[in-house]
Amino acid sequence: MSLRGKKILVTGADGFIGSHLVEELVRQGYDVCAFVNYNSFNSWGWLDHSPHEITKELNVFAGDVRDPYGVKKAMTGYDVVLHLASLIAIPYSYHSPDTYVDTNIKGTLNVLQAARELNIEKVVHTSTSEVYGTAKFVPITEEHPLQGQSPYSASKIGADQLALSFYNSFNLPVSIIRPFNTYGPRQSARAVIPTIITQIASGEKAIKLGSIHPTRDFNYVKDTVNGFISVAKSEKSIGEVINIGSNYEISIGETANLIAELMSVNIEILTEDQRLRPEKSEVERLWADNTKAKELLGWYPTYGERDGFKRGLKETIDWFTTSSNLKNYKTRMYNI
């Protein structure tokens, strides 16, 4: 479907991926409303850092996806909903799993119910590679079994299944995008790449991490954003789950050493117990098969393979090491 002339609502627009997505949609000339989390500071999250030429074109709705009435009000008058609002920190899901059920499952239900009642033309629901758990085979296709190895991943499995149920039960035009580990400017320091960069940037040589042997398929945020837009445009994506990944696997330890090389420092990696996941909860291996995205959407990673990963890391390092950006992070504090 063409997005020209469509009114697009993005939930989770104040977050890492959501803010980049909103900015790109505005740059491409689309009519966008940013659904941000209501707070008493009137903060729009990362959108507060967006250029004026972006924000002046935005409609902004402050609310909470856990509130069905506010969600329906926000969605009224819009044609396409890109649903990114979610609690995503895995360590915090061990601490407060109830909040993940409320936000990730009930929040998604609120979006789906409103979309059904309002006859929304397209809903893109955001999944995560964490729903696969430790790979039983690689590269991981969309047919891989789902494994709830953390309360976070369990909540996202539940949300994904709700989205598919509304497609199957009510013919709601839902697509599920399943990004693998997205990284880039603005990401929370609880994620491993910003954790490494910000520790080095603050002068640390002994870098504190959790497990370094697990592997990940890191996806640069620009590629993830292009994946969202491609899914939104594609009629073939309706009723489908689609991986968005680089199809390149690398360990956490090798990633840390690669970042150190790009930042021209020598580091020592220390394992800190509080950063370790419970043994059965650790996802040991993630590696995306992105064939379906290429075939259905014509999407492919422009930051793929090792050279693309290094380019994405360089852009990420450049952003985090800018003093005005680095000051937003508490580099010596572990953030769950």
Rank of each mutant, 00 (worst) to 15 (best):
G308C: 10
I207S: 05
E315P: 03
H49R: 14
K205M: 01
W299L: 00
P214R: 06
Y183F: 14
V123Y: 01
I177P: 03
H83F: 01
S2K: 10
L58W: 00
E23C: 09
V26Y: 08
I157F: 08
T141W: 13
Q113V: 07
S324I: 06
F180L: 06
K6D: 05
T291W: 03
L162E: 05
I267T: 06
I140V: 15
G70V: 01
N168S: 09
L9H: 04
A13S: 05
T76M: 04
H95F: 14
G70R: 07
T128A: 09
K314V: 00
S150Y: 12
G63D: 02
L297G: 03
E261T: 13
F166V: 02
L58A: 03
K122M: 05
G227P: 10
K7H: 05
E295M: 07
N247P: 07
S150T: 15
D79E: 07
E240M: 10
V10H: 08
L9V: 12
P68C: 01
D307G: 01
S264P: 02
V231Y: 02
N181D: 14
S175V: 00
S251I: 10
H95R: 15
A201K: 04
R116G: 00
K136I: 12
N219Y: 15
T99A: 14
P301T: 01
N247F: 07
Y94H: 15
I336R: 05
F228Q: 08
Y78D: 12
G70H: 01
K136T: 13
